[in-house]
């Protein structure tokens, strides 16, 4: 019977300044970049960067909570695979990300509406 490995997911809340450092550490210790996503919750952006290991199946999430006005650095210099995820966050949520390797300038999905899932959404509802 195949071995079942199901480690508990790790969720690590970090400061925006530590993002680059922690992603570098994780990639150096053999983790691969799994995904990045944003959520707009209670007036703040919650960014989740997920790293996972091919061998142990360990999922390690880095959580950064920032104000909509805060600018955060791109991790594409460290993790080239993150380029589409960051462009997506930028376009759909309006997260301010600087220095993306291949910046589509909000033209990845070419949607008409600006940041449809970002802060404006809640303003419209109110």
């Amino acid at each position: 019977m195949g071995e079942i490995r199901n480690p508990e997911n790790i969720l690590e809340v970090i400061e925006a300044d530590d993002l680059l450092k922690r992603s570098l550490e994780l990639t150096k210790s053999g983790y691969r970049f799994s995904q990045a996503c944003a959520a707009f919750v209670d007036g703040k952006f919650e960014l989740s960067y997920s790293f996972s290991d091919y061998e142990t199946y360990q999922l390690h999430n880095l959580r950064v909570v920032i104000d909509p006005a805060t600018e955060i650095p791109s991790i594409t210099e460290i993790v080239p695979a993150a380029v589409f995820y960051e462009n997506e966050m930028k376009e759909l949520f309006g997260v301010k990300i600087k220095m993306i390797n291949l910046d589509y300038e909000n033209k990845l999905y070419r949607i008409r509406q600006e940041a449809p899932m970002g802060p404006q959404k809640t303003e419209e509802e109110n």
Binding site: G2, E3, I4, R5, N6, Y54, E55, Y57
Partner: peptide, 17 residues
């Protein structure tokens, strides 16, 4: 790369070989 998420054991995969 040996990576198959079925190894995580969701659904009935833990009971299968």
């Amino acid at each position: 790369v040996v990576s198959d998420m079925r190894t995580l054991g969701y659904a009935a995969y833990p009971m299968l070989d």
